[in-house]
Simulated assay, not measured.
Amino acid sequence: MAAEVITTDDLREFKIELLEDLKRLLKEHSGQPTKKWLKSYEVRKLLGISPGTLQNLRVNGTLPFTKIGGVIYYDYADIQSMLQSNKFQNRLR
């Protein structure tokens, strides 16, 4: 069995490549969940809202949802769309 020698230059190059890959992955996701469908507790945590507030968003049609069995799922794109459509810009005069 042949032994392969790893030099400090090899390790340095590996470190640089690894850091570049990690930066690329973080930039692609930019803190967003990687899942398309989120459960209620995940949405509450993401938005920092109570179960009652989430229920109100469902009931008044602000946030679309899908219910399968007893589990409610929310599309991450719908959450982003809801936030974008309710966005206000404060203009100072």
Rank of each mutant, 00 (worst) to 15 (best):
residue 91 R to M: 07
residue 43 V to D: 15
residue 8 T to C: 13
residue 62 T to S: 15
residue 4 E to M: 08
residue 82 M to T: 03
residue 65 F to K: 11
residue 54 L to Q: 12
residue 11 L to N: 07
residue 81 S to N: 15
residue 18 L to Y: 06
residue 57 L to W: 14
residue 73 Y to A: 00
residue 80 Q to E: 12
residue 13 E to K: 04
residue 1 M to R: 12
residue 41 Y to R: 07
residue 8 T to F: 15
residue 36 K to D: 10
residue 43 V to P: 03
residue 40 S to Y: 06
residue 57 L to V: 04
residue 59 V to G: 14
residue 43 V to E: 11
residue 78 D to A: 09
residue 84 Q to A: 14
residue 42 E to L: 01
residue 57 L to I: 00
residue 37 W to V: 03
residue 65 F to Y: 14
residue 72 I to D: 04
residue 90 N to Y: 00
residue 46 L to M: 13
residue 50 S to Y: 05
residue 16 I to P: 04
residue 25 L to K: 09
residue 15 K to S: 10
residue 32 Q to V: 01
residue 69 G to N: 08
residue 78 D to M: 08
residue 10 D to F: 10
residue 52 G to W: 12
residue 24 R to I: 02
residue 3 A to K: 10
residue 25 L to I: 08
residue 28 E to T: 06
residue 32 Q to Y: 08
residue 54 L to D: 11
residue 24 R to A: 13
residue 69 G to R: 09
residue 33 P to D: 11
residue 14 F to T: 07
residue 27 K to V: 05
residue 7 T to W: 05
residue 66 T to Q: 11
residue 91 R to V: 02
residue 11 L to C: 05
residue 12 R to L: 11
residue 65 F to L: 01
residue 27 K to Y: 02
residue 65 F to H: 14
residue 77 A to P: 04
residue 15 K to G: 03
residue 75 D to K: 15
residue 93 R to W: 01
residue 48 G to R: 10
residue 23 K to V: 03
residue 77 A to Y: 07
residue 14 F to P: 00
residue 41 Y to Q: 10
residue 45 K to G: 00
residue 44 R to I: 01
residue 44 R to E: 15
residue 39 K to A: 07
residue 17 E to P: 02
residue 27 K to E: 15
residue 26 L to C: 11
residue 13 E to I: 03
residue 66 T to P: 07
residue 1 M to S: 10
residue 85 S to V: 05
residue 68 I to H: 13
residue 73 Y to F: 08
residue 14 F to E: 10
residue 12 R to M: 10
residue 63 L to R: 09
residue 62 T to Y: 01
residue 80 Q to R: 14
residue 69 G to E: 08
